[in-house]
């Protein structure tokens, strides 16, 4: 038991040092802008189709599932607003971040672990270059910037899914749907939800980079890194979300 606690605390301390190093490296030259652009393309653009499909289904299903309860209270006209608030405040950011952790987090964890076990990171180090800056900083910055964009796009597609869902058993025009949505969605729904996605993106990428960078030798280490990147990345989303909800409640709820 003591050994398990020791190992957990040691892991936590190493992750802390890894994060501190990120903040030291990110503001000091040299800036790897071309690699950052490449990572933004890989992490952001290439994840969009998956996020869009998930967002559409999420909006559609949520609307269909909510209709019977809303109908019971004679409030089907509130359906667009209710679904929009749910998607924008909570479901959109969390589901998109979980998809992101599964796709991007596992990819980063496996790629870096593979580079570690095939001595590619050592090769960069012995040549006198800075592998942390080139590999870790670029991926973490790209993920931190790209996830909020993906969440905005995912929310938009999710709301389109909701529009389709509303019209399966009812008839709501395009204009009326958006009028209902913007009647209820306010700044305090959008802003905190968007801010927390920066933290989601950062935590997913830094955990994945840490797991990959500190991988053990062998193919088993690569698999373990990819796996633990997703597990701890996803867990971090819920922890950050819980804290974000408390903070939002403190500042934005009347």
């Amino acid at each position: 038991m003591v050994a398990v606690v020791n190992s957990f605390l040691e892991e936590l301390a190493n992750l802390y040092l890894f994060v501190i190093r990120f903040f030291k490296e990110v503001f000091t030259p040299r800036y790897e802008l071309s690699e950052l652009a490449k990572q933004c393309f890989t992490i952001g653009y290439k994840s969009f189709p998956l996020v869009a499909i998930t967002g559409f289904i999420m909006g559609l299903v949520l609307t269909i599932q909510s209709r019977p309860t809303m109908a019971e209270f004679g409030a089907t006209s509130w359906l667009p607003a209710m679904v929009a608030v749910s998607i924008i405040r909570e479901i959109g950011p969390v589901i998109t971040a979980l998809i992101f952790a599964g796709k991007v987090g596992s990819g980063i964890g496996a790629e870096l672990a593979s580079m570690k076990v095939t001595e590619q990171i050592d090769a960069m180090e012995v040549s006198g270059t800075n592998p942390y800056k080139y590999i870790v900083v670029t991926r973490v910055v790209a993920a931190t910037l790209m996830l909020p964009l993906l969440v905005i796009l995912g929310d938009a597609v999710g709301l389109y899914g909701a529009y389709v869902g509303v019209n399966i058993k009812g008839e709501v025009s395009w204009t009326l749907f958006w009028y209902n949505v913007f009647q209820k969605v306010v700044f305090s729904d959008v802003f905190p939800a968007l801010v927390k996605t920066f933290f989601f993106g950062f935590s997913i990428a830094i955990i994945s980079c840490y797991k990959g960078y500190s991988a053990n030798s062998g193919t088993e280490g690569v698999g373990a890194s990819a796996n633990s990147s997703v597990v701890f990345g996803s867990l971090s989303i819920f922890v950050i979300d819980m804290l974000a909800v408390q903070i939002t409640d403190l500042f934005f709820t009347p």
Partner: peptide
């Protein structure tokens, strides 16, 4: 790192950036 610039290292696996 300044010192390492004066040294070349060939790894057993070559360690090319794939």
């Amino acid at each position: 790192n300044v010192m390492r610039k004066r040294i070349g290292f060939l790894f057993q696996s070559a360690a090319l950036y794939d």
